[in-house]
Design a protein around this nucleic acid. Sequence first.
DNA 1: TGTACATCAGTGAACGCGCGTTCACTGATGTAC
DNA 2: TGTACATCAGTGAACGCGCGTTCACTGATGTAC
Lengths: 205, 205
Amino acid sequence: MRKQGYHHGNLRQALVDAALKLIEEKGPTGFTLSEAAKLAGVTPAAVYRHFEGREDLIAEASRQGYEIFADVMQYAYDKGQPSALAAFSATGRAYLAFARRYPGHYIAMFESGISVNKTPELAAVSARARGVLERAAEDLSRHIPENRRPPAAMFSAHVWALSHGVVELFARNSPGTASPFPPEELLESAIGVYLRGLGLIAPDC
Amino acid sequence: MRKQGYHHGNLRQALVDAALKLIEEKGPTGFTLSEAAKLAGVTPAAVYRHFEGREDLIAEASRQGYEIFADVMQYAYDKGQPSALAAFSATGRAYLAFARRYPGHYIAMFESGISVNKTPELAAVSARARGVLERAAEDLSRHIPENRRPPAAMFSAHVWALSHGVVELFARNSPGTASPFPPEELLESAIGVYLRGLGLIAPDC
DNA sequence: TGTACATCAGTGAACGCGCGTTCACTGATGTAC
DNA sequence: TGTACATCAGTGAACGCGCGTTCACTGATGTAC
């Protein structure tokens, strides 16, 4: 995607990529329109040919992140089938894997302060992602005796929160809160204990 | 703490309070030195009589937060004694309660990007807080048969991550990720399932 | 194939703004005698 | 109790900076004939 003359060729995506890189490096705070433009080899004013402004650019970065995120979760879910348990665990792992592989997207999605309701497209794709995890939870909840089955939405919220917490606290170098365990192990073991608590896997293994 | 004349009386703390209020309202991004000074009824330059600069002010806000946080956790732990289980659950609940009651502090501590190693005092008090949760986890882990007991540090990391995730995703109005459950219930139920998974509470109740 | 022209995607200069920080200053306070 | 003076905690003006955004412009591209 090198700029070669007056016209860039694919400036829109180049700007998104630049934004993602900057967000990853400096956080959503550190990201500036001007710097993203510079990184893409273009004048700040050029950005306005493709986006309404700074917020709009971040929103697009976030949208692309949710798109990947939803795909990744869906893929993990499908791969775990037909075992509801395997599908559920896989989506949890996929969450963490996504956060580690696409940190810029992750930050744009969850830490940039952009509301998921900023645009209809963003709302739709984030709903799709949440939907996958909720479906996995629902499948799983059918294996629990009906009378003491907690709502599936609660399941998925639990795992979502757990995954997000692990990412924020332990998968970043962030607030010095180093853990003696790698995040993957932490999440895996937590989900293991959790599923045992639901009576979905054998008590000792 | 009203300013009455040329001298303020307690400007240092007034600035911290102003910073906390602004951080709570606008996030760590939205917080500016100048605005905090204005809120305290003082010229931006006056801030430099009490702090080295913007970062230093945030660090102090964070430090005060950790101080309260550690106290709250300690109190919860003590109150749960002598039951290791009660003490452990109480610290988890205390985490969430703190986040809800002191949102400005919480954000300064965990979302402002200030490293816990910024100053020795900050490092010390954050270690104290973490220590309480780790001790609660250790007490609890003694009730698990030794041969299949996971490390206590892992426990506490799990609960810490879960609590943080619940706060970030569901206890804020933030990224439109509304949940049909109140955060307290979410955390309580998740910890319940988790403890059941550890075999520490009865399978069905 | 060649020319005229519309459309598009960039430029570059300029803007107003609020930021963090500095500096010499001055008003208020407290202490020594 | 009163005066002189050191210390302290503020002021207010100024700075340089980089930001997001606007505007009239111009160079490149593609299409019609």
